[in-house]
């Protein structure tokens, strides 16, 4: 890894949390959740990639989805919000330090025409921080708002597993257009995915749907497809929670190697079954984003709302 210590991110490597714990809304009776209003400069839609359980392939899905969306003509960025186990730099092949512009704002790294920022660009593994809550919040806000994002249609946010500080901070601080949930077919992962969906529903964040990763294994030798895990769980979770099932992604043994080399499957093996699955997925996500934009415009269009109100008034008269 080409770590350049001369290009510090605006957070110190040896950092102690200085925040006041009473700022943690969990400690007070006030409702902690308020709709964030300030948009992210340069970004049209912020989409979260979430899962309850770890290791189900959030980062792999994020990187490949980004590349597939790019191929469909969208301008895409990735924010690696997994402060605890950042993977995006390696998977996208952007193991570099970050530059800053004249105003001290951080410039994102770029590869495969995808712009990305990750904590791994900034803090070398030897510095291993354990992330206390206030430091998490401060760092995330910097990653969203002190980075010069080029004009992006979509900023994908790769979340850490679970429903902890990172998730809560982002939902508090950043306007989110929607979320896709990644799971594997195991019961173990589905239970945690359900907890995740419950959180987003509770906060009124649109859940675009569930992606079932590793739904089958394709032998690289003979092409035989076999299920590694019991099947059907993700579809039934989707129908139970009234969210879309966006499709399954097969486990491709070439995927790990591709990820280790920073060459996502969508690029390195664009005719493969996994790449095809990601392409379909990107189409669905693009549609969901479009739909969400229409809703937003309709809500923003006051004349429409007035018409709507007038209609109800007439009806009531």
């Amino acid at each position: 890894m080409n770590w350049d210590a001369n290009r510090p991110f605006p957070i110190p490597v040896i950092a102690e949390s200085t925040g006041n714990d009473s700022q943690h809304r969990g400690d007070t009776d006030e409702p902690w959740y308020a709709e964030p209003e300030e948009p992210i400069q340069g970004v049209d839609d912020v989409i979260l990639v979430a899962s309850g359980k770890g290791g189900v392939g959030k980062s792999t899905v994020t990187v490949n989805l980004a590349c597939a969306l790019r191929r469909q003509g969208m301008r895409v960025g990735i924010l690696d919000a997994d402060l605890y186990g950042p993977s995006i730099t390696r998977m996208l092949g952007v193991n570099v330090g970050l530059d800053r512009d004249d105003n001290g704002m951080t410039l994102p790294a770029e590869n495969h025409d995808i712009y990305a920022v990750s904590i791994a660009n900034v803090v070398p593994p030897e510095a291993a921080l354990s992330w206390k809550g206030p430091l998490v919040a401060q760092t995330l806000v910097q990653m969203f708002r002190e980075v010069v994002w080029p004009d992006l249609d979509i900023l994908l946010v790769d979340l850490p597993p679970g429903t902890g500080d990172v998730q809560l901070t982002i939902l508090e601080q950043v306007p989110v257009s929607g979320v896709v949930i990644v799971t594997t077919p195991q019961q173990l992962a589905l239970v945690d995915a359900e907890r995740g969906i419950a959180l987003f529903h509770e906060l009124d964040i649109p859940v675009f749907g569930i992606i079932e990763n590793m739904d089958r294994y394709v032998c690289p030798c003979c092409g035989e497809e076999q299920a590694l895990f019991p099947v059907g769980g993700a579809k039934s979770l989707a129908s139970r929670k009234h969210v879309a099932y966006l499709g399954g992604i097969p486990l491709d043994p070439a995927g790990q190697d591709a990820a280790d080399r920073g060459q996502p499957l969508v690029i390195s093996n664009d005719q493969g079954k996994a790449a095809t699955a990601f392409t379909n997925l990107a189409g669905q996500v693009a549609k969901a984003v479009e739909r969400e934009r229409l809703y937003r415009e309709r809500d923003a269009d006051t004349s429409l709302r007035e018409d709507h109100e007038a209609f109800w008034e007439r009806l009531l008269d």
Binding site: R25, G133, G164, V191, G196, L199
Partner: peptide
Amino acid sequence: PAGQALMWRGSL
């Protein structure tokens, strides 16, 4: 309870 998200702040 199953199916309920646990939102634990660090302080919790």
